[in-house]
Simulated scan of single mutants.
Amino acid sequence: MANKEVDHNTHSGIAALSICESLLLALNDANILPEREIMGILEDAASAHENEGGSYTEIESHKAVAALIKSIISSGNSVRRK
């Protein structure tokens, strides 16, 4: 049962990330948010996770999330470069 819950959480996280990336792209494409604002949103999200506390497991999870967001920032996945 625990594996199904982990799989569900993992799949939910991947789905949420994909939806958020698509929304950021759409906002940029529609000239609603410029690239610098989108990058700021991503940087704020990474920073929020870097500064979270909790148990060792929770802190490690937050660090992993921050690293993933920073990877998105550095690879340019969420914003199409012009």
Rank of each mutant, 00 (worst) to 15 (best):
L17W: 15
L17R: 08
S18A: 15
S18L: 13
I19H: 15
I19E: 14
C20Y: 13
L25Q: 05
L25S: 07
L25W: 07
A26H: 11
L27P: 05
L27E: 06
D29S: 10
A30W: 03
N31T: 02
N31Y: 04
I32R: 00
I32P: 00
I32G: 02
L33F: 00
L33H: 00
P34V: 00
P34A: 06
P34I: 00
R36P: 01
R36E: 00
I38K: 00
I38H: 01
M39E: 09
M39Q: 05
M39K: 05
I41L: 15
I41V: 12
L42I: 02
L42Q: 09
E43N: 15
A45Q: 06
A46R: 02
S47V: 15
A48K: 08
E50F: 10
N51F: 01
N51C: 02
E52P: 08
G54C: 03
S55R: 06
Y56R: 14
T57M: 14
E58S: 14
I59M: 14
I59E: 11
I59F: 06
E60V: 08
E60I: 07
H62F: 05
H62G: 04
H62C: 05
H62W: 11
K63N: 09
A64P: 09
A64H: 06
A64E: 10
V65T: 11
A66N: 04
A67N: 12
A67G: 01
L68T: 10
L68Q: 07
K70F: 05
K70G: 04
S71C: 15
I72R: 03
I72F: 07
I72Q: 11
S74I: 10
S74C: 08
G76Q: 08
N77D: 15
N77G: 11
N77H: 12
N77L: 12
S78D: 02
S78Y: 10
V79T: 12
V79C: 03
R80D: 06
